[in-house]
């Protein structure tokens, strides 16, 4: 059986990068409306990574992060994560509520993050669905604050079932107001899209690039 990930061409990787730019760009727009602050976005990265290296890429298994996770179902399947450092998460909550968060997250603070996660993932997926014409149904996003290894492990299990490698599609956003203080050293927030390996072909077919070679 051919490995769907190894056969992906450079042109198709470029398509995945653009998918990420469009999804994250729309999500950044939604976030900027919510926060009333400009939100910047970097050019997306598309990385074929070994299963074990994905958590390392996100900052190491023991790094404490806030993560909104959802599964995508419908015409294609995959996992989506929005990952932010806890310090950045606290800043976001303070911006929204106007009150300082204590060391532990308050119930209201948790709810703010949950809602931010809903809005971001919703706008990302809506854009992706409009772009591809595919029906994409998100599961209810779940928010957790824990070590990256614990949080990402669950979502990565699906991928681990069908191969050792996954394609990680990463878009980084940062809120301009926070730049001087926190975002720079903590790397801002990341959208990670991890299509299940058998979804790539459907995705490329939907966009009419299933037969595009790299040379």
């Amino acid at each position: 059986m051919s490995d769907p990930i190894r056969n992906i061409t450079d042109f198709q990787l470029d398509v995945l990068r653009e998918i990420s730019n469009i999804g994250a760009g729309n999500a950044a727009t939604a976030l900027s409306k919510l926060l009333n602050n400009p939100v910047d976005m970097k050019v997306s990265r598309v990385l074929p990574l070994h299963f074990n290296d994905i958590i390392e890429y996100v900052g190491g298994a023991e790094n404490i992060v806030a993560t909104v996770f959802l599964r995508i179902q419908g015409d294609i399947a995959g996992s989506m994560f929005f990952v932010i450092n806890t310090e950045v998460a606290k800043r976001l909550i303070e911006d929204m509520l106007g009150t300082l968060e204590a060391d532990d997250f308050s119930e209201m603070g948790f709810s703010v993050l949950q809602e931010i996660g809903n809005i971001l993932s919703g706008s990302y997926l809506t854009a992706l669905s409009d772009f591809t014409g595919l029906d994409l149904q998100p599961s209810v996003p779940s928010l957790a604050i824990d070590m990256a290894g614990a949080l990402l492990g669950d979502g990565l299990m699906e991928i681990g079932r069908s191969g050792d490698y996954a394609i990680l599609i990463d878009a980084e956003i940062s809120i301009r107001k926070l730049v001087q203080q926190i975002i720079v050293q903590n790397g801002g927030g990341h959208f990670f899209l991890l299509p299940d390996p058998d979804s790539f072909e459907k995705l490329f077919t939907a966009l009419g690039v299933q037969n595009h070679g790299s040379s």
């Binding site: 730019n21 469009i22 999804g23 994250a24 760009g25 729309n26 950044a28 727009t29 900027s32 409306k33 400009p38 939100v39 976005m41 854009a127 772009f131």
Partner: peptide
């Protein structure tokens, strides 16, 4: 894809004729 207001205003002020959101 970055259709936020500040970005659109930036672009129009710099002389862009229109702004299409992806």
């Amino acid at each position: 894809a970055m259709g936020q207001q500040a970005m659109v205003i930036d672009a129009i002020q710099a002389g862009a004729k229109d702004f299409i959101v992806k």
